[in-house]
Design a protein around this nucleic acid. Sequence first.
DNA 1: GGAACCCTTCAAAGCTATAT
DNA 2: ATATAGCTTTGAAGGGTTCC
Length: 247
Amino acid sequence: MSESSAASTSIQVLSRMFSLLDTLAHEGDSVSLKSISEQTGLHPSTAHRILNDLAVGGMVERSGPGAYRLGLRLLALGNQVRARLDVRELAVRPMQELHRQTGHTVSLFVRQDDDALCVERTVSERSGVQVTRVMGLRVPLASHAAGKLLMLQDSTTVLQVLAAAQGLRLESLQAELAAIRQQGLALDSDSPDPLLQLAAAPVYDDQGRVCAALVLNAPVARFGQDWQDALKHTAARISASLGWTHR
DNA sequence: GGAACCCTTCAAAGCTATAT
DNA sequence: ATATAGCTTTGAAGGGTTCC
């Protein structure tokens, strides 16, 4: 058995499944088994068997004899992903307001695997405060205030792995997370610039899970209780717009 | 009737978990 | 580390259906 696949996985059938779904997505409408087989390079029997199982799971629908299209279950799954991404749009205005109030940079971080990924950041311009999409700024979870917030719901097993990856003791990481949980805010004590203080507040989704972290970066001298409260309040506003009602 | 296509069956090969 | 058993996946072959 030999097959070359650009997106190879450890389980061959999964690569093939991705290939089949990509083909159906590319075509948009119903596609015949023969056409799918040609486009994916899979033997028709192999394509048929996988499509059959995908149809059982609702990922694919039979639009007629020997014709397939994407299934409605993908819509449900896609909606879940979209709900996660919406936080970026909903956060824009509150981020601008917090920037105007404090005069300092506000960022939004989301989790991606074992890293915290910065996705939006405010920028001061002549026309006012703008929020720009940031590409590629990522930090290990345990090394950043935002990342620590995004670890709050992790199991001990996961925390153990993440702590080990950063050369931290599990107990001290857990104690830090407990303090953050109680405070409702994460403060970075070891900022590269001693004059700057970085604080992060949690953004909750409609299920009450931390889905993002709102970060304010400001001079230590000016970072009082009022700005901490403003940061928490802004994060709470974004959470509320995502459907989270604090209980 | 013949060609083209879809779908199912089944033997073989490959993979994975478990025992030693 | 190796052997083994059981499970999964594959592709060829062939039956059934549709279309011209």
